[in-house]
Design a protein around this nucleic acid. Structure first.
Length: 494
RNA sequence: GGCGUCGUACCCAAGUGGCUAAGGGAAGGGUCUGCAAAACCCUCAUUCAGCAGUUCGAAUCUGCUCGGCGCCUCCA
């Protein structure tokens, strides 16, 4: 089982190919994290979830994984086109915006959004990476890289900064297919403002800027590092010259990853990454998410509206990463039902007792195996989830389980949870937070309790017409009553 | 203009050369529980945007047409 091939799409070759770690059974993986200038939206998390699923799948076949996922907290510019880095730093921009007013400085802003990001990460039940480097903690290495690139002739200094010479890398464009020089330059022309560059397509490694809110001293004076060099440097620092796998969103293909490749390979003379994985965009109601279209969802927005975190997770992985996924509120509703089914199955497994044979035989083991197989086949989450649900249905089909069956069910659910992260029962902390964020119930608890008692009395007297009238009354107040076999009634706010 | 990707039922979404086109939601019918909820059972695409072609055989390959979406410009 440990030698089953793990097949993934590779952007560099455009094909699905086997993922083969340089060091057998030890995956060295770098995934691009967020720029912490705002709350992460659900599209950001779709791509982080792809990385999480790669790691889970690799571990499921017994591989060791060293996973590095960075946090970009400086240098990602709003006008950072293929070339110029002529815009303003995203973090500085955010500080000047309305939401930024509450922060004293850009460092505080970065720290705040980085913490929010980690909170979202945990709520959506992503695996914790081995290392989470921040760009600001690796400025020294970035300066050293700039010096080295200048020395080898791949970069040059001008009055405004240090630029990478695209011309020095004949294979520049191999990842994105943007190899047409004319079109590259034409694309750049509109936004290029820096006349000091030798070639419009050259991109910044270091920007000289004495007014920047985050600045460091370098051989080129005060300034800050370019966005692309951050990832090159951090990946190398923790994973070595050649990575087994590098991932990000599809928009990272160009310019970000293209530039990383150029810099890293110029620095080391070795291939930067053997496998490139990119997650397609998440669409909302058939369109790309954007604030202006009003279809923009952050993770916290949805969770604070009472969405179950695992339902959101389920919804975001319900389609394969290699195709655009259309997210709608209906998708979320559907996902909620699945999560409830898993919860129900888990309860059954936990309350199992008594003698008897395992009623499931090998069927649950087979389903888990099929789910794993689907994940090994280019992360086919849709099929893996279908198999998981089939297993959950087999479990919930039973009204109660004996000990042997309960053990089999618990093992299945645990395996599925480790693979897909959708059955986690250890969710109290999150659940409480979400509960707190819910709007106040329209009906007060004492009133509902009184109504329940009234209804119980009516039921006892077999006055079902009155009992139904009471149910109707509380329903209209937005309260849902649920009767249990033991005669008790619980309620929840709809 | 350059590069790319997709078009499968009411909705979401697998399948990418060959048994009856996964799975879920919704909907309809049923079992069960006084009712409701949950759970369970049944039904729900002779058909895969359109046209032409390759093939013994195509949703799956090729060509064209139409349409969606994306990157090249801030974005995962």
């Amino acid at each position: 089982m440990s030698d089953r091939p793990f097949r993934l799409h590779d952007t560099l070759t455009g094909k699905v190919k086997e993922l083969i770690p340089l060091e057998p059974r030890h995956l060295k993986f770098y995934s691009c994290g967020p720029t912490v200038y705002s709350y992460a939206h659900i599209g950001n998390f779709r791509s982080f979830l792809t990385a999480d699923l790669v790691v889970r799948t690799a571990k499921a076949i017994g591989w060791d994984v060293t996973w590095v996922s960075n946090i970009t907290d400086v240098g990602h510019l709003t006008m950072d086109d293929m070339a110029d880095a002529g815009g303003e730093d995203k973090l500085e921009g955010a500080l000047r915006s309305k939401e930024g007013e509450r922060f004293h400085n850009v460092w505080e802003l970065a720290e705040y959004y980085a913490a929010a990001y980690l909170e979202d990460w945990q709520r959506l039940n992503l695996t914790e990476p081995d290392i989470r480097p921040k760009a600001t903690q690796h400025v020294r290495e970035q300066i050293l890289a700039a010096e080295s690139l200048i020395k080898s002739g791949h970069a040059y200094e001008t009055s405004s900064g240090v630029y990478f010479s695209v011309e020095s890398r004949p294979d520049y464009g191999k990842l994105s297919g943007n190899t047409d020089r004319e079109s590259l330059i034409r694309g750049a022309r509109d936004v290029v403002t820096d006349e000091t560059k030798r070639d419009p397509a050259d991109f910044a490694i270091w920007k000289k800027d004495e007014k920047h809110l985050m600045q460091w001293f370098s051989p080129y004076g005060w300034g800050f590092p370019g966005w692309h060099i951050e990832c090159s440097v951090m990946a190398r620092a923790y994973l070595g010259d050649t990575l087994d796998l590098h991932s990000g969103g599809e928009d990272n293909i160009f310019p970000h990853h293209e530039c990383e490749i150029a810099q890293s390979e110029a620095l080391t003379g070795k291939p930067f990454a053997n496998h490139w994985l990119h997650t397609r965009f998440l669409l909302v109601n058939g369109e790309k998410m954007s604030k202006s279209k009003g279809n923009f969802f952050t993770v916290r927005d949805l969770l604070s509206q009472g969405t179950h975190p695992l339902a959101l997770r389920y919804a975001l992985i319900s389609g394969v990463y290699s195709k655009q996924l259309n997210f709608t509120l209906q998708t979320l509703e559907d996902a909620k039902r699945h999560v409830q089914r898993f919860e129900k199955a888990l309860q059954l497994a936990e309350s199992a007792q008594g003698d008897g044979p395992n009623v499931f035989g090998d069927s649950l083991d087979d389903l888990y195996d099929q789910a794993l197989e689907a994940m090994l086949n280019d992360l086919n989450t849709a099929v893996a989830l279908a198999k998981s649900i089939e297993g959950a249905k087999q479990i919930t089909k039973e009204s109660e389980l004996n000990a042997a069956s309960g053990e089999a069910a618990a093992r299945f659910l645990d395996q599925i949870n480790r693979l897909l992260g959708i059955v986690n029962s250890d969710y109290e902390a999150v659940a409480v937070k979400v509960e707190e964020a819910k709007p106040e119930p329209k009906a007060d608890a004492a009133w509902v309790e009184a109504k329940i008692a009234e209804r119980a009395a009516a039921k006892k007297a077999k006055d079902f017409a009155l009992a139904d009238a009471i149910r109707k009354e509380v329903t209209e107040a937005g309260v849902v009553l649920q009767d249990h076999p033991d005669g008790t009634t619980t309620w929840s706010v709809d």
